[in-house]
């Protein structure tokens, strides 16, 4: 996952795009090394000390990890659980849509 996400974030660093994580590790301190090692620069909500039993994943009925949602500029869910190339296509399409709206 990380390499693909890294390249997506890098490719779109000047576009109106954000990758937002919801992290379900129990220990935030331990995670700092992972962030460094894996060059995870994007921001994450923390799901709290209960890990996968935390409040955000519960509110979103998340049952398997990773779970992906893609939102458009209006905050509307447009895709669920797209991975790899399909995720890139979805994001590119929504960016195009956003661009067209501005004109």
């Amino acid at each position: 996952m990380y390499p693909h996400e890294r390249s997506l974030v890098k490719r779109l660093e000047n576009s109106p795009f954000a990758l937002i994580g919801v992290n379900s590790d129990q220990d935030r301190e331990k995670l700092k090394k992972t962030l460094e090692d894996e060059k995870i620069t994007w921001r994450s909500f923390w799901n709290g000390p209960k890990g996968t039993g935390g409040p955000i994943s519960a509110a979103w009925h998340v049952q398997s990890w990773p779970t992906i949602y893609v939102l458009d500029g209006d905050g509307v869910i447009r895709y669920r659980n797209v991975r790899g190339e399909a995720m890139d296509r979805a994001v590119d399409e929504l960016l195009k849509e956003l661009e067209a709206k501005k004109k």
Binding site: M1, E5, L8, S15, P16, F17, A18, L19, I20, G21, V22, N23, S24, D25, R28, L31, K32, L35, R43, S44, F45, W46, N47, G51, T52, I56, S57, W60, V62, W65, P66, T67, I68, Y69, V70, L71, D72, G73, D74, G75, M87, V91, L94, L95, L98
Partner: peptide, 22 residues
């Protein structure tokens, strides 16, 4: 992860990928 509070809606106007990860 740095204990700073933020909101998903802060990113309105952008295309957002939400990734539940661990």
């Amino acid at each position: 992860l740095d204990t700073k509070t933020f909101k998903l809606s802060d990113y309105r106007g952008k295309v957002v990928v939400i990734d539940f990860w661990g």
